[in-house]
Nucleic acid binder design. Structure first.
Length: 431
DNA sequence: TGAAATGTTGGGGCG
DNA sequence: ACGCCCCAACATTTC
């Protein structure tokens, strides 16, 4: 019997997995593999990267599940274009299954692998799994992509049927996994990484969280959000499953998942947003180059309690509450007038749930340069945001215990003056 | 998923 | 009773 390969990338689960389902259903032996891509790993700043630890932990869990089914996960480390010839040699696959990845690097990589597999008579089968709608499924009447969220979301909701959320019953075919020799899991140490001390969020979400999401999601002191972002990022939970739950229970919840699809299709259709403003005029903004200000922002010592609490939460946990992400992003781009790319890069380095599309979209939203962005004159007042969203100062005190005392730094910029400089600087660039 | 400036209205103190 | 002023509260516009 011939062998096909399921290539795990950002779909690290056995349940409700589109490509894995089709691989298992194909009637062949299915060998699961994962490649730690050194093209990505080599660019990471720290050897103590929580994302690498997260992936490694999830791979160990999948390997264990597969072992219980008499199979096993085979994990490689290297440049995929160099690893794949070895894989082809070893398994002689008659096909390869994978779920679509829409990032620019992944598209280029996958095209190379597809071409290689074609010459080896092993077709590369790819599937929609990471999103509810494929990149060309939600388009304007004239066939061009939406660049405004609200009409996109309307079309998205109108197009949604129960079929889109139907789970793929992979478990029906679990007897199809290749009964192969086991392969030792590559260790973090072998890859040059250490185990992160960061705690990973749970995969489970109660229906209560979704039901109360609208009422609670804006208050960083309470656990009002699901913390599922990292699981959506790496596919450790099914987006279909969580969308189905939200569809019944919470419009706001659903909207946040639609934002995710929205930004993924924006990155796909407008890859220039990596490194460039979506609206070119915004690249004329004369950003400050104040490294001291940037360092203070990164380290959470700007003298603004909510900003500093957010940055300290990020540094300590690899997570920041969404409301606070908006506050610190507005502060960096408007009060400090620092280039949004600086903030984007710092988040990319620190966030456990970092995803290029959402991170870039969020930063360009804050800077005003993006699709459907906040207008440049929308400047969050860092004091008012405390009054609205952390009135009891519980969140601030948790991360900045010295807030308000003599040990706490003075504001690095004065709010009113910074606001006016911001308005003048943006206006200069946009006129 | 903003905030500040400016405009409008109306109650109440007061001469 | 009336006009005037102050100012809170709300609405609109401006950035």
């Amino acid at each position: 019997m011939s062998t096909v390969i399921h290539w795990f990338r950002r779909d690290l689960r056995l349940a409700d997995n589109a490509a894995l389902y089709h691989a298992l259903k194909s009637g062949n032996n299915v060998q699961c593999i994962f490649i730690f891509d050194t093209e990505i790993l080599n660019k990471l700043e720290s050897k103590d990267d929580a994302r690498v630890s997260f992936i490694h932990k999830e791979l160990c869990a999948i390997d264990q599940e597969l072992k219980e089914l008499g199979s096993g996960l085979h994990v490689y480390c290297g440049n995929p274009t160099e690893i794949w010839p070895q894989i082809i040699q070893k398994y002689q696959p008659t096909g390869v299954y994978a779920n679509n990845d829409y990032e620019p690097y992944a598209i280029t990589r996958d095209q190379k692998i597809k071409d290689l597999l074609y010459t080896k008579n092993a077709p590369f089968h790819t599937f929609k799994d990471h999103v509810i709608f494929e990149m060309d499924e939600i388009l304007k009447g004239d066939g061009t992509p939406y660049v405004v969220y609200t009409p996109y979301s309307r079309k998205w909701k109108a197009a949604l049927t129960a079929d889109h959320l139907e789970p793929y019953p992979t478990e029906k075919y679990f007897n199809r996994f290749y009964k192969t020799e086991t392969m030792d899991m590559v260790s973090l140490e072998e890859m040059g990484f250490t185990k992160s001390e960061i705690n990973f969020p749970s995969k489970t979400t109660t229906l209560g969280t979704i039901k109360n999401y609208e009422a609670k999601r804006n208050f960083p002191a309470i656990e009002g959000t699901s913390r599922l972002s990292v699981h959506f990022r790496f596919g450790t939970v099914s987006i279909r499953n969580k969308t189905a739950k939200g569809k019944k229970t919470s419009e706001k919840w659903l909207n946040e998942l639609i934002w995710r699809d929205f930004y993924i299709q924006i990155l796909y259709h407008f890859p220039h947003v990596v490194g460039n403003s979506f609206r070119p005029k915004y690249d004329a903004v004369r950003w400050s180059k104040n490294e001291e200000h940037f360092k203070a922002w990164c380290e959470g010592r700007t003298g603004y309690g909510l900003v500093d609490a957010g940055m300290r939460e990020l540094n300590a946990t690899g997570f920041m509450h969404n409301r606070v992400r908006m506050v610190v992003a507005s502060f960096l781009t408007k009060h400090l007038l620092l280039d949004w790319r600086w903030g984007e890069a710092y988040f990319a380095q620190k966030l456990l749930d970092f995803e290029l599309a959402s991170n870039n979209g969020g930063w360009q939203w804050a800077a005003g340069s993006g699709v459907d962005a906040a207008p440049y004159f929308r400047i969050f007042n860092p004091y008012t945001q405390i009054e609205k969203f952390d009135k009891q100062h519980i969140y601030i005190k948790k991360w900045v215990p010295e807030w308000g005392s003599a040990d706490y730094p003075k504001e690095i910029v004065e709010h009113k003056a910074a606001r006016e400089i911001c308005l003048a600087t943006y206006k200069e660039a946009l006129n």
